[in-house]
């Protein structure tokens, strides 16, 4: 079953906290496809954004298990319809077999900017929702993808809502 949900985690910025989170994911057998870590904008805290694939009970278990990690201050689902989620991609497309303009016609639909030009390739940078990035990737596949790197998902809830109020 394909049911992906994004979880926001506010964690104490202690050494080893990433290992604690990933080790728990691994030993409890959770299925994740994206994990990002960054400063949370709050002194002493980092923010993790994890996309998990599982039914509601598995997501509920995921959050309950995460909350048992001493360094995890808050773990919560960021609902798709009430959050902004975004990621960035760098993608190197082969120009060997297709006209550059054909490629640009596609990439421009996704506001992908050409950031580097090689002899036989073009490198683009694009950002957008995970779905937009997925679609971009599938559309340029026919030109030949030489390399790509995605940052993983960053997400915040809409409006004034915060993951946690930290004094």
């Amino acid at each position: 079953m394909d049911n992906k949900q994004i979880i926001g985690l506010l964690v104490h910025n202690h050494p080893g906290v990433l290992l604690r989170v990933t080790s728990l994911i691994s030993r409890r057998g959770f299925n994740i496809d994206s994990l990002t870590v960054s400063p949370a904008g709050i002194e002493g805290y980092s923010r993790m954004t994890i996309r998990i694939n599982g039914d509601d009970n598995q997501v509920d278990q995921f959050i309950s298990q995460m909350m048992k990690i001493v360094d995890v201050k808050k773990a919560e689902v960021l609902p798709e319809d009430a959050s902004v989620a975004s990621e960035l991609i760098l993608i190197k497309i082969s120009t060997a077999e297709h006209d550059n303009n054909d490629i640009l016609a596609v990439t421009s639909k996704y506001h992908a900017s050409l950031v580097n030009l090689g002899n036989h390739s073009m490198t683009f940078r694009a950002s957008g929702t995970p779905t937009e990035i997925d679609t971009l990737v599938s559309e340029v596949k026919e030109f030949g993808i030489l390399e790509m790197a995605r940052t993983g998902i960053a997400a915040l809830e809409n409006g004034d809502k915060l993951l946690a109020n930290v004094e």
Partner: peptide
């Protein structure tokens, strides 16, 4: 006392 025990093995 442990929230994670709810619905872990049995509904």
């Amino acid at each position: 006392i442990d929230r994670a025990e709810i619905n872990k093995n049995v509904k």
